[in-house]
Design a protein around this nucleic acid. Structure first.
Lengths: 168, 168
DNA sequence: GCAAATTTGCAACATTATAACACTTGCTGC
DNA sequence: GCAGCAAGTGTTATAATGTTGCAAATTTGC
């Protein structure tokens, strides 16, 4: 599997989108789930950038392209996409972002730039392990995680402090 | 400093509350912040249990005791309490919980029982470290964290599976 | 084709949070 | 004490986010 492009660096974003859509189609086919036109369109809108989209942003975009949808339409599509792990909801932003590890059954760790809004999803075994240990130490049985880190992405960091070297 | 009682175990909860209020008064005095009647009352309501409270729950409780407040009153009190680290907001629940490490300038890790609603706040150096490492590996500069783990607390685990031994 | 199940459309509504502006309270310097 | 100012509170209205319930349309399995 090819390394995915980092959202921070310029990349052929159309390729991101078509890859995500192709993955989604595969996953849905395998699980006998129906990736209907609306669901696919919502997924595509979410993938239009690496910035999370609110449900009402999606609604507005659908509206501006003639599909006059009501909130439940969007929320149902989002529920479906969440259920199949194709998108994530970012609780700290009330917004949705495309899942870059679709099909891997994971809890992501999200790095959210409060400057430009870009989100990078990571998997980190050490983080998962540390959390699991901490929970176990309290006899707590973890089932789901919301891990959202807010800060400055490398690009915005560089802008804020142009002299500093980049460890990129 | 005495070990704090665990929310999961029966404890003298009045002591939790009065400790929290005393801490709050100290912190506010030190920082020349005004812990007014409303702010203190909101803090007390939040500490009434180890279950997070929604802003509108607080509003309702204030109402039921004759103080007919409007949403901004509650949200302003909450903003104040958040600012001085006396409460935390749980993004995954849209609710507020008392900070059990007030004054320590920290990001908590929250273990949220989806059965009984109880929340335990932890500090975990290994978790913080792992997250910091993961962020740094992406040249991302972390500033704030939302770490909320949903699962089963020991008490509810025991109820769900009475035969299992407790590693308490 | 047809019955059943799933999906979508739609209207209304619920919940969470904020804006704007007037009024009150408490502090500061004199 | 008290004028003047900043901080805090009250009140109304409204914005933003998310859900319920039911009917119509579409798809699926047979």
């Amino acid at each position: 599997m090819p390394e995915r492009a980092l959202p921070y660096r310029p990349h052929n974003h159309d390729a991101c989108v078509s890859q995500a859509l192709a993955d989604a189609r595969t996953i849905c086919r395998e699980q006998n789930a129906r990736l209907t036109a609306i669901r696919e369109r919502v997924l595509e809108l979410i993938w239009q950038s690496h910035k999370p989209l609110g449900a009402y942003d999606i609604l507005a975009q659908l509206g501006s392209e003639g599909h006059n949808a009501a909130p439940p339409t969007v929320y149902r599509a989002l529920d479906f996409l969440l259920q199949y792990g194709l998108v994530h909801r970012l609780a700290s932003l009330n917004a949705f972002t495309g899942c870059s590890h679709a099909g891997e059954n994971h809890h992501g760790l999200f790095l959210i730039c409060h400057q430009c809004g870009t989100v990078l999803e990571l998997e980190s075994a050490p983080v998962s392990q540390a959390i699991d240990d901490a929970a176990r130490a309290q006899a707590f049985q973890p089932e789901g995680a919301t891990l959202e880190i807010s800060g400055l992405c490398p690009r915005c960091r560089a802008e804020a402090n142009p002299g500093a070297p980049s460890h990129d």
